[in-house]
Each structure stands twice: as C-alpha cells, then as structure tokens.
Simulated scan of single mutants.
Amino acid sequence: MIWEVFRQEAPGKYHTHCGNVHAPDREMALLFAQVQHGRRKPTNSLWVVPKEEIGEVDAEEAEFGGTTDKSYRWVSAYNVDVDFAAEIAESDREQREAERGES
C-alpha cells in the first residue's frame, strides 16, 4: 500500500507533501516516514495518508478564478485623499509582505 507523507518543518507552519512510502499499515508507514522523510531536515511532525484517500479537484473540473480576490481589504484598492499617503504606503508594504508569505 502506498502512503503519502506530509512534513511540518516547525510548529505553526503548514504541512507540505514530501514524498511517499510503501507500507502494509499505518504504524509501519509512520515508522518508514520518520526514517525516510523526517530525519534529514528539521521536522516537527509528519502525516501519513493512504494514497487512495487523497482526492483532487483540478482547474478543468471547477473554476477557482476570482474566489480569492480580497483586494477590498487593502487601502490601495480605493481612491483616497493624499493626506493618507503614509497609511497607503504602509498598507502596500503589508500587502506585499503578505503575498510573499512574510509576517
């Protein structure tokens, strides 16, 4: 049975797919995942999931466009007075950092 492995580098970070292992059950999959994917890089936790339990929706099956536009949350999306130039610059900086994944 094939198990997909997801690794979390540090507490609070997202789990990311790092590979798979072949194992007969969950306990062996966790053990193999620790050996193969958890010991060389910093690892906070591992998830193992049976490959057949992972579902997928791709762009041909559903439309994703437009659902994630949240530009209304940023000051730069609106016409404002020049008196707020410093606040607009700060908002733009925050937006660029958020898009790059910085906090």
Rank of each mutant, 00 (worst) to 15 (best):
G66E: 05
F64V: 08
E102T: 10
D81N: 14
G19C: 00
Q95R: 15
V57Q: 09
H22P: 00
M28S: 08
V57S: 03
K70M: 11
A77L: 09
D58S: 11
E53D: 12
A98I: 07
R7M: 09
S45M: 06
P24S: 01
P50S: 02
I88Q: 14
K41I: 04
E87V: 04
A77E: 15
G38W: 06
P11H: 06
A77V: 05
M28V: 13
A23R: 00
E90W: 07
L46A: 06
M28C: 10
L46N: 04
W74G: 07
L30T: 04
W3R: 00
E9F: 07
F64I: 05
E60L: 09
S71P: 08
R26H: 00
I2M: 06
A29M: 00
W47D: 11
E90I: 03
S45P: 07
C18W: 02
R39E: 03
R7S: 02
D81W: 03
M1F: 05
G19D: 02
A62E: 11
A98F: 15
R100M: 10
R39N: 03
V57W: 11
R93A: 15
A10E: 15
K41E: 15
G101Q: 10
A77T: 08
S91P: 06
S76Q: 14
K51M: 03
F84K: 07
K13Y: 13
L31H: 12
V49A: 03
E56V: 05
G38D: 09
E27A: 11
H37P: 02
L30D: 12
W74H: 12
R93Y: 10
V48M: 01
D25N: 09
A98Q: 14
Y14F: 13
C18D: 02
E56I: 06
V49Q: 03
E60Y: 12
A62L: 08
R93M: 11
R96A: 09
Y72G: 12
F64H: 03
R40P: 01
V49W: 01
R26T: 00
G65N: 10
V82K: 14
A77C: 12
W74F: 15
S103K: 04
L31K: 13
E4N: 06
R100P: 01
R39C: 05
E53R: 05
H37T: 00
T16C: 07
V49M: 09
E61W: 14
N79S: 11
N79V: 11
S76E: 15
Y14A: 12
A77K: 04
T16D: 11
D81M: 07
K51R: 10
S76W: 09
F64P: 06
P50N: 01
T43Y: 03
K70F: 13
Y78V: 06
Y14V: 05
T16K: 12
P24A: 03
R100I: 02
E90K: 05
E90C: 06
D69R: 03
V80S: 14
S45I: 01
E102L: 15
D69K: 02
D58T: 07
K41H: 09
E53I: 01
P50K: 13
P50H: 02
Q95P: 03
I54R: 01
D81F: 05
L30C: 12
D92N: 12
E9P: 05
F32C: 03
A98K: 11
V35H: 02
L46E: 04
V21S: 00
I54L: 07
A10S: 13
S91L: 02
D25P: 00
D69H: 05
H22F: 08
V48C: 03
G65I: 09
E90Y: 04
S103V: 08
K70A: 11
R40N: 11
A59Y: 08
